[in-house]
Every structure is written in structure tokens, then in C-alpha cells.
Amino acid sequence: MSHASAQPLKGPPHIHHMDSVTAYHAAKLGMWLFLATEILLFAVLFTAFAIYRWYNLEEFHAGSHHLNWILGMTNTAVLLFSSFTAALAVDAGQKGNNKAVVKLVGVTIACGAIFLIIKYFEYSSKYHHGYFPGQANYLEFKNFLGLYYCMTGLHALHVIIGMGLLTWVLLKAKKDRFSHDYYTPVEIGALYWHLVDLIWIYLFPLLYLVG
């Protein structure tokens, strides 16, 4: 314990108050709890959506048809694929294959970027047609669009945070940090990314298809 040596290149970092297996499980439980808080963050929006949909069913149908479901479905596929690569990244981490972690996490981040670009085109088309809050056509579907922007906006924010988190994982993998007995950051980052996917799985039919 009293070695003056620097952090080991591989293997779990030394933590003074618990052993590395406990640290791994603690980090994972902590991340799941954090995901629980994220679910509740979105729960408010889902509740608001449910109640306003009940009030204004026609408006929600009409508003939903105004969204481009092809773009929505493309984004769904992009996120599902990114979730797949994130899961494979954890698998690579479990096997200590840092090169594969770099590649797979890189693909995941790229998918996140594609998602955001598509989202940007959707938003800007809405803006040009005057469907932003405060613009002329907004009042047509105000409750639907208000929640659409809040939900997708918050989701996009999570995509950005997730990309940041995965970039941190990627840098660690580049330094060859992960091994079969230490891959906690990959798993934590991937869990967060899967949540982004999970939320979108609900948002897509809710906003683009059923309305």
C-alpha cells in the first residue's frame, strides 16, 4: 500500500476506502440510480404530454402528422445502432481490448453526431416554417409543439452529455487503461448512452407516429 509508484498503467485504480470489486459494483449501482433520476426527469414531460394529449387529442394528431416520420425513424435506427456499438465496446472492455474500445466508442460518438445533425435539420425546417414558440404558426399546435421541443430538446442535451462522457472513455482507452479487471468507465458511459436510446424508443412513436 505504501508504494510511492505512480498509478498503474492497467488494472483498477487504488481507492483507499474499498476494494476494486466493491468499487466496480458501487459505481454501477450509482450509475443505475442516476439513470433512475433521469427517467423521472423525463417522467414529468411524459405526464404533461399525457394530460395535454387528453385535453387536445385532435391538435396532437395534427401536430404529429406535421413531423417527418422518416427522419424520426432514421434517427431511431442510428441510435439503436449506436447502442449496439456501445454494448460491444463494453464487451471489448471486459476483454481488455483497448483498440476495439476506441473504435467502437468512436462509432458510437459518430452516431450521436449524425443524430444531432438530423435533429438540427428538423428544428431548422420547423423554424423556417414559423413553428417555433413566439412565431406565427406556433399557436396552431401550441401544446404539442411546446412539449415536442421540451422533450426532444432535453433528449438532445442528453445526447450531447453522453457524447462528452464517451469522449472521456475514448481518451482513457487510447491510453490503454482498461483491462479485464478494470473497465468501469466503459460500462458507466455505455449505460448512460443506452438511456439516451431508451428514451428515444418512447419519444419516436409518441411524437412522430401516434401523436
Binding site: S20, F84, D91, D181, Y183
Partner: peptide, 27 residues
Amino acid sequence: MAHNSHSSHAADHSELGHIIPFAVYRN
């Protein structure tokens, strides 16, 4: 790793995460 050898020999796969075959992820 000299300074936590007690934990690294304990840290085999069964105590950390579960490994799932690639085919499952693909399917």
C-alpha cells in the same frame, strides 16, 4: 499490480460484469 494483488486475484469475471456472446448482441 503490486499494491492491490489481494483484490485483483479475487476480481475474476464472475465477480465483475457478465460477458455476453457477440451473436446475442447482433440478434
